[in-house]
Computed example of a mutant assay.
Amino acid sequence: MLWIIGAICALFVSGGAYWKKSLTLSGALAATVMGTIYFAAGHLFWFGILLVFFVSSSALSKYKQSHKNELEQSYAKTGRRDAGQVLANGGLGMLLCLLNAIWPHPEWAYAYVGIMATVTADTWATEIGSLSRKLPRSVLNGRRLPAGTSGGVSLLGTMAAAIGGAMIGGFAWLFEVISGPLDRSLLIWLLVGIVAGLVGAFTDSILGASLQLMYKCRVCDKDVEVLHHCGQETVKIRGLSLMNNDAVNIWSSILGGCAALVIAILMDL
């Protein structure tokens, strides 16, 4: 019965997201499967945090969309998420949800919140940071970069990342209160969300500035993540072949989850 209810709820949410053009068809199908597993194998804590990330990130992607349209042409992934992006953002959390169902352990929850704080912080940093009036700086050398360049960071984007991570930590505490006995304080969850979110977001920027696969547009001479730009095929300039945007998101999430686990271990000392 839980699987049926989960499938219905997930289909309703992903269907609405597809209708609102927040998900492609493949993204909606992946989100339906993922949501079903989260709901049936987990509970409010797991499904609720996933929903908070998805709803808040989708809403932000639509905020001042006209201002972001030009920047999105340089990104491998746009505000409308496909199956690869859905799995890159929620696949690791789904694995932890299944592991917790098979072998319950508190550390799974910490790692999960760290992962979701990372993807939320990274999304918020991108969506809000792109609205900054100042050009971003390279996370590696501090030089000014064109808006939308991978590896660029800004004060506004960093603040957005911290707030996004804190939001995930706050909802983790709330859902834990509602779901069962509370054994972790709000302060701990906020600390996990903020630290893990910032670690993951900066890891994303560092990988974006170093190992991520990047191309150069033959027309506008801009560094981009896509194979075609300005109607022309782009030229590879750096990065590892397998280190695309989704791979960067996965590795950043792993580092964010590890940061959350470190906090959990330190709290137990």
Rank of each mutant, 00 (worst) to 15 (best):
G165Q: 01
I115H: 06
G93I: 00
Y75P: 03
I128M: 13
L135D: 15
L98T: 06
R144P: 07
G157F: 02
D122F: 03
S74L: 14
L60M: 14
G129H: 12
H67F: 11
I37W: 04
T158V: 03
A121Q: 01
N100I: 02
N100Q: 11
L95Y: 03
M34S: 15
G84V: 00
M167H: 01
A121G: 01
L156I: 13
I168G: 08
L71K: 06
S150T: 09
S57R: 05
L96K: 00
N141M: 14
A160H: 01
E107A: 14
L50E: 08
L174N: 08
S138C: 14
L145M: 14
W108C: 09
A117D: 08
A166I: 09
S61W: 10
F47Y: 07
S150D: 15
A166Y: 00
G84H: 01
T32H: 03
G48W: 00
V86A: 10
P146I: 10
V55P: 13
M167F: 11
G148E: 07
L156N: 02
G91T: 03
S58R: 06
I163Y: 00
Q73V: 09
I115P: 03
G114A: 08
V86Q: 05
R81S: 06
I49C: 08
G48S: 08
F175G: 09
I49S: 09
I168W: 02
K134S: 13
A76G: 11
F39H: 07
L145R: 12
F53M: 05
M167P: 00
A121F: 04
A40R: 01
F175H: 06
F171V: 10
Y112E: 04
L71W: 11
R144T: 13
L145H: 11
M34F: 15
G114R: 02
A147S: 15
S57H: 07
N89W: 01
G90K: 01
L155M: 11
I49G: 06
T149Q: 14
A40Q: 04
W46R: 03
R144A: 15
A166H: 02
S61T: 15
Q85Y: 07
G48K: 00
V33P: 02
F175S: 04
I115C: 07
L95M: 10
E70S: 15
V55W: 05
L96E: 03
S58G: 13
L60S: 12
V52D: 06
A41N: 01
A117R: 02
C97Y: 00
E127G: 13
K77R: 15
R144H: 13
F53Q: 08
L95Q: 02
G169Q: 06
T118S: 07
W46F: 15
S56M: 06
V113R: 05
L98A: 14
T78D: 07
G35F: 05
I168P: 05
R81T: 00
I49M: 09
I168F: 11
L155T: 10
T78G: 11
Y112A: 14
E107P: 06
P104C: 14
S130M: 09
S58T: 12
Q85R: 07
E127W: 09
G152C: 07
W124L: 05
K62V: 13
V119L: 06
A117I: 02
F39A: 06
T126D: 10
T32P: 05
S74C: 08
H105M: 12
W46H: 15
V153K: 02
V153C: 12
